[in-house]
Write a protein that binds this DNA or RNA. Structure first.
Length: 792
DNA sequence: AAAATGGCTCTTTTT
DNA sequence: GAGCCATTTT
């Protein structure tokens, strides 16, 4: 098809010029290419979403492809919603309603509901999240009498998780070592529990959908023919299972289009494999490759800063992002003394922007890890700036919400044992541990007798009749049983929100919380109210589509929703991790914590090796979110994870061209005069800090930084004290003076018999104090203080 | 049976 | 700093 044949309907997507109403040449080519495989490398801010929506609109409106024959997979539900919304404007609701647009997980769940019989699932299967999975595994470990110390349930789960990501289920598991022998047992028992509870976890969703789509039987055939056009967004972040699913679902068509940017691949730790997008054209003969390289989003200075960072990445698909946009202001790099100082600066700037008339939802604050958000939040609250935080402790993970959800899930699916266990004594109704373990035993016993699993719920009646219990326990159990039965009856005719309200009332949970009359219980009640409100929102949304909201539908949505999906479209400053920022853009971006070991992040745990390449891409993603203004902050000293960390500016800052960056320091940082004392902080006594000076501490201007590099830095080289560069290690030191543990502080020069000289980064007090020390030529190591010697 | 306390560990990013 | 667990106290 010729590009000219395609008439672009007018759209209004709220994007300002210079993102004009026409597509540029590669964009149009991508939107119009409808025959055969296509891979689009879409640089940051190059109008990717627009291409995808136009492409789908083109298929439906011009090529008359029935919408239900099109599958579009997105990374988050939010992205799916946005895409649908834009498409509604292009081709109308009648068309978009039947499109398959969703995340891998949501799409799999939808398929599994539709073909639940073939998948061997009950129609009302529930999806277990991480917490539920842990609960199941804890039970399994107890049942099998496994030593939890030697085989932590978390580790077993993570082993199982990585197996499933490779596409192997319990039946396919081949133990490789002694740990695996235990894992194998747990894997099997875990799978059995899940089956008996009619539950699936996140990995199962994909795995089971895949099994279905690859199967030789009728349903498999049907699934492989179901979609004529398959489109995958954020393709750089798919893992092997997801890719196999895509291949299976597009087995009968060559019309597969994938869109991604290998530079923005940031989910390797979750199994994402960049090689999949890089190899796509080899996997699919006859593939067209289109590159979108013009950035419409950011100023030239921001684009140049981003390019500086990504230029050093290894193994890139060759491409060069460029922009016609104006230079704009310089990228400001601000040195702060501590995380409080940093937060004060950030919030001060946010205030300024808002006073200048910038809408708060055009301002975002990014950080590498959630733990950084607390201080920012505190200062935001103190300054009365409306903010919303994406991630952290999720709303749905709060105890009261999980309790209510567990009630709902037990009602929908009484076989869900972990849910039942969670709420059987909430509010307290005299069903204690002893009674619950009797119930467990009874369920196990009955199960053995009939040769299949019996749920706790179904074991209640037999247990009560068995007369093994005291009168009080019997009464309590019967009461609970009746409560659930009544609620199930109620649920048949009520909407999910009505059910939730009824649960709170007839379970006595609400009353119990009211009786508590503490700040905490007030908060919980408030959250529950908000929660019911969110169910109502869901119901309205579904009603708008002409459907009826179901309990199952709601439960599924809750479990599969990404944190980013909950982001409200209200004008508030957004605080989030860089991962959360993927796919978003803001006029003003403040990127915090730009220090070595924070970003790039390095865990205190030496076993957990970071991936420097991925950190680099993550930094690239962060920088490219900004449209007009980018401010990057870093601190000398950061109190995080309960101890102090000493930071030097991130290596990524050095990679940005000097002519697009301006360096400065906060007032507090400057007045600290080369020391990292935060004078507000009493824990930092004078005598402790004066003995040591931070190598990067002299002043905060670019001049200073360029002309007086820290001792460990040689022009033209990276910092040498890293383990991922050619190490220049200091010699082991013999002797050395004994060290007084009480005098040890951050910045202390110490020596170690094997690692040589080093500088103390942080100290964990305790019975056996441990310090994190950066020895020359080594990654920071955790060392018991008693092994350290004084260096001077 | 429930609440309170103290000690322990872990501390990335998420569907 | 927070969450989890085991123990003690009421």
């Amino acid at each position: 098809m010729e590009v000219e044949d395609f008439e672009f309907p007018p759209i209004d997507d709220g994007v300002e010029p210079p993102f004009v109403a026409e597509l540029n040449e590669p964009q149009a080519a991508a939107a119009a290419h409808v025959d055969g495989p296509l891979v689009v490398f879409a640089g940051a801010g190059s109008g990717k979403t627009r291409v995808i929506t136009y492409r789908i609109a083109n298929l439906c409106a011009v090529h008359s492809v029935p919408p239900y024959r099109i599958l579009a997979v997105t990374f988050t539900n939010k992205a799916a919603g946005e895409m649908k919304h834009r498409l509604e404007g292009l081709i109308g609701k009648d068309m978009t309603r039947d499109l398959w647009v969703g995340t891998f997980h949501a799409t799999s769940a939808k398929l599994l509901r539709q073909y639940h019989e073939a998948a061997g699932l009950s129609r009302s299967f529930v999806v277990y999240d991480d917490g539920d999975q842990r609960a199941v595994m804890n039970r399994v470990v107890k049942e099998l009498r496994i030593d939890e110390k030697r085989y932590p349930p978390r580790q077993i789960l993570s082993r199982i998780h990585s197996e499933k990501q490779e596409g192997r289920d319990a039946a396919d598991f081949i133990p490789g070592n002694y740990f695996d022998d235990v894992v194998a047992k747990c894997f099997e028992a875990y799978a059995r529990h899940m089956r008996e509870a009619s539950a699936v976890d996140f990995d199962d969703l994909l795995l089971r959908a895949l099994k279905l789509a690859e199967s030789k039987d009728r349903v498999g055939e049907e699934l492989r023919r179901k979609f004529r056009y398959v489109l995958v967004d954020e393709f750089q972040d798919v893992n092997q299972v997801q890719y196999r699913l895509v291949r299976a679902l597009s087995a009968q068509t060559t019309n597969i289009c994938v869109v991604g940017d290998d530079d923005q691949s940031i989910y390797r730790w979750r199994g994402a494999d960049v090689r999949i997008v890089r190899n796509f054209k080899h996997d699919h003969p006859g593939s067209e490759v289109i590159k979108l390289e013009q950035n419409y989003r950011s100023t030239k200075n921001i684009v140049d800063a981003a390019l500086g960072v990504i230029r050093h990445a290894q193994d890139r698909e060759p491409k060069e992002l460029w922009t016609d946009n104006e230079k704009g202001q310089l990228v400001r790099v601000v040195a702060a003394s501590t995380e409080r100082d940093e937060a004060a600066f950030v919030v001060g700037h946010v205030r300024e922007l808002i006073d200048r008339g910038v809408s708060p939802d055009e301002i975002a604050v990014f950080y590498r890890v959630h733990a950084q958000s607390r201080v920012l939040e505190e200062v935001m609250r103190a300054e009365r700036i409306a903010y919303q935080i994406v991630g952290g402790v999720r709303f749905f993970e709060r105890a009261e919400i999980k309790n209510l959800l567990s009630y709902m899930r037990v009602i929908a699916n009484p076989a869900s044992d972990v849910d039942l266990e969670r709420i059987i004594n909430v509010p307290a109704r005299k069903i204690g541990e002893t009674t619950v373990s009797r119930l467990q035993a009874k369920a196990g016993e009955l199960g053995e007798r009939i040769g299949k699993g019996v749920s706790y719920f179904d074991a209640i009646d037999p247990l009560v009749e068995s007369r093994e219990l005291g009168a009080a326990a019997r009464k309590a159990l019967l009461g609970f049983h009746e409560l659930i039965k009544d609620l199930q009856t109620f649920a048949k005719t009520a909407s999910p929100s009505e059910l939730a309200a009824q649960i709170l009332e007839s379970s006595g949970y609400e009353e119990a919380l009211r009786a508590e009359e503490t700040d905490e219980s007030e908060g919980r009640l408030f959250n529950l109210e908000e929660f019911i409100g969110s169910i109502q929102e869901y119901e309205e949304e579904v009603a708008a589509l002409g459907d009826v909201a179901t309990l199952n539908g709601y439960l599924e949505r809750v479990t599969l929703s990404a944190q980013i999906d909950d982001m409200k479209d209200v004008p508030k400053v957004v605080l989030m991790t860089v991962h959360g920022a993927k796919g978003l853009e803001f006029s003003h971006v403040m990127l915090t914590g730009m220090e070595e070991d924070m970003f790039p992040f390095r865990s205190n745990d030496p076993d957990r090796k970071g991936d420097m390449e991925e950190e680099r891409r993550l930094a690239y993603v962060a920088v490219t979110r900004a449209r007009k203004e980018l401010i990057i902050t870093h601190t000398e000293l950061r109190n995080i994870f309960g101890s102090m960390r000493l930071g030097s500016p991130s290596r990524f800052l050095r990679d940005m061209p000097t002519n697009v960056v301006e360096n400065e320091a906060t007032d507090s940082r400057r007045s600290a005069g080369g020391r990292f004392i935060d004078r507000d902080r009493q824990s930092w006594g004078r005598d402790r800090s004066e003995s040591w000076t931070h190598p990067m501490s002299a002043g905060g201007t670019r001049r200073d930084r360029q002309e007086s590099p820290p001792p460990s830095f040689q022009p033209g080289e990276r910092y040498v004290e890293r383990d991922d560069e050619a190490p220049v290690r200091s010699m082991p030191v013999k002797g050395g003076r004994a060290l007084d543990p009480a005098a040890l502080h951050i910045g202390s020069q110490v020596s170690h018999s094997s690692f040589g000289m080093g500088v103390v980064q942080s100290i964990d007090e305790g019975a056996d104090p441990t310090a994190t020390v950066r020895f020359t030529g080594w990654a920071p190591k955790r060392v018991k203080v008693r092994f350290l010697k004084s260096a001077d």
